[in-house]
Design a binder for these strands. Structure first.
Lengths: 199, 199
DNA sequence: TCCACCATGTAACTGGTTACATGATTAC
DNA sequence: GTAATCATGTAACCAGTTACATGGTGGA
């Protein structure tokens, strides 16, 4: 009897709660306002998800009587929840993960630093890089083999994919360099300086 | 009483069926084998989806007694289905489409050429391009404004997104050039094109 | 005969969406 | 007192997943 792993939404919630104990309302706002907007929102998704996490013992919600405001249920990770989050973050990256879509991997990356430290983030990037390379190459091979028999639109759509994966591959190199740089400088605190921007 | 628009899967099925009348089995194989793998597969999704499309009158399934094989139900588009597909393909591209994810847009692009001709595909690319530019710029602005207060991982994740959108923007330029080239050279397609002349 | 494969379906479960309900607090 | 906002929930519905069922066909 397999306990279904938490959905991506579940892991996103775990990650955010780990970062800072939060109420459902807080989390909704985060999803709605920050660049994580592609992840769902709306009470009908989040409150039930939090209940599921609590039922699995990954999270513990305590009603706080915030002076002067309506009671809010503050969730924080349990030890089990923390372990589950770590397990998800360190799960080996496979071809199928890349294929299924890169957004879950980016979410994992975004949480790795604060949950497991910069070294783990670098390790993640290296794995990601290693998975991207053959994937892009495979697409390229498929493209070369089938280009002649595909309509132009199909060929171009594939090329778009190849370019996207290549771009991400290049990004992993850049990101690793950034981490190394931030480590060699002041230790422990990831450098917030250097707002160069991409490119 | 709004009939819910077909889901993305529904449109994907319409597009594939338009290209060539197909059975559920054919469609499953397409999803499983071609680079469209990210779209679902598995009978439990496809057969019910086909039934829904039929119930909406977008598609008509006829049992063919393919000599020597088990009967297969061949679906083909109805006029209504064709119209619905065209409506989806030509729906204006908005910021929210880009945000929600680019894969639906790529699917639309891939079907546009065969359904509506090369001119429509070019028009789609131009719209797509026009939507990508401000989106990437907006991300960039957000990044610059918040980089200082974000952990390195968050900053890098955002930068990855910016790079991805830039790469896609560049791709739209390339794709438009490719279409122009294919049109000016040997016209393979019977000219549905030339509506407004390639600007 | 039995197995492998083609092809279609179905049932149980899960999770997300939309829309609404509820109640507490602050501002007027 | 009433409106706006904070905050949590709930119910109905819908689509997708997994896993299984069905049955027809060809080949050993």
């Amino acid at each position: 009897m397999r306990l279904k792993d938490s959905s991506v939404l579940g892991y996103a919630l775990l990650g955010l709660i780990q970062r800072k104990p939060s109420s459902g309302y807080d989390l909704r706002k985060l999803f709605a306002e920050t660049a994580m907007g592609n992840y769902s929102s709306s009470p009908g998704a989040i409150y039930p998800a939090l209940e599921r996490l609590q039922a699995q013992g990954l999270v513990l919600g305590i009603v706080k009587d915030m002076a002067g405001l309506r009671r809010r249920r503050l969730y924080r990770l349990t030890a089990k929840g923390s372990a589950e989050l770590s397990k998800w973050l360190t799960r080996p990256i496979e071809r199928s993960d890349v294929k299924r879509g890169v957004s879950e991997l980016m979410l994992r990356f975004a949480f790795t630093e604060q949950a497991l430290g910069a070294a783990a983030a670098i390790a993640f990037l290296q794995q990601f890089r290693a998975a991207l390379k053959p994937y892009a190459a495979g697409l390229q091979v498929y493209l070369r083999a089938n280009a002649a028999s595909m309509p132009l639109s199909g060929r171009l759509a594939l090329e778009c994919g190849v370019r996207g994966y290549r771009s991400m591959y290049a990004w992993t190199g850049y990101a690793i360099r950034q981490y190394r740089q931030s480590q060699s400088g002041t230790d422990s605190r990831p450098a917030k300086t250097r707002k160069g921007g991409p490119r």
